[in-house]
Amino acid sequence: MNGKRVIREKTPRQLLNRATGFLEGYTHTLNPYVGCAFACSYCYVRQMPVALFRGEEWGSWVDIKTEAAEVLRKDLRKARRQEGPVTIFMSSSTDPYQPEEAKFGVTRSLLEVMAGDEAAPNFLFVQTRSPLVSRDLDLLAKLGNRVRLSMTIETDREDMRRAFTPYAPPLQARFRVLKEAVSRGIPAQATIAPVLPSTDSFADRLAEIVDRVCIDDYFMGDGSQGRRTQRLGLKAQYECLGVGDWYDREAYKRVLARLKEHFPQDRIGISQIGFSPQFAPARTPL
Rank of each mutant, 00 (worst) to 15 (best):
R146W: 09
F38V: 02
G21Y: 08
V210R: 07
Q98S: 05
T107K: 00
L234Y: 02
E250K: 13
R129N: 15
S60G: 04
F263E: 02
A193V: 15
G144Y: 11
G35Y: 02
K260W: 00
C240D: 15
C40A: 13
L206H: 08
Y33C: 01
Q272N: 04
A19M: 01
G185T: 09
R176W: 12
N17C: 14
A236G: 13
V147F: 13
F263V: 13
K253S: 10
F164W: 11
D117A: 07
P264F: 03
T27Q: 03
W246Q: 12
I209C: 07
Q230S: 15
L286V: 04
V177D: 07
I273W: 07
L232G: 08
G144H: 14
F275Q: 01
P281Y: 05
Y42Q: 03
S276V: 05
K65M: 10
R176Y: 12
D222V: 01
P32N: 05
T11R: 14
Y26A: 04
P194L: 11
G269S: 00
E154N: 15
K65E: 04
T165A: 13
Y238V: 11
L149N: 14
L23I: 09
F53K: 14
Q47K: 02
T107G: 02
A163F: 06
L256R: 05
Q278E: 08
G274R: 02
A203V: 13
T152H: 12
M220V: 01
R80I: 03
A68C: 10
S224R: 03
E100I: 12
F89W: 05
V126L: 15
D216Y: 06
E83H: 11
D138Q: 13
R254S: 11
S109D: 06
F279S: 01
W246M: 03
S201L: 12
R135L: 09
E67Y: 08
S201H: 10
C240H: 13
E208D: 15
T284P: 00
A79M: 13
Y97V: 03
K10E: 11
L76G: 14
C40M: 10
L76W: 09
D216V: 03
C43A: 10
G144N: 14
E101L: 01
T20Q: 03
V182P: 04
K103N: 12
T11M: 06
T165R: 03
G21K: 01
T20R: 06
V126R: 09
R18A: 14
R135P: 05
E83D: 15
G226I: 04
F219C: 00
L139E: 10
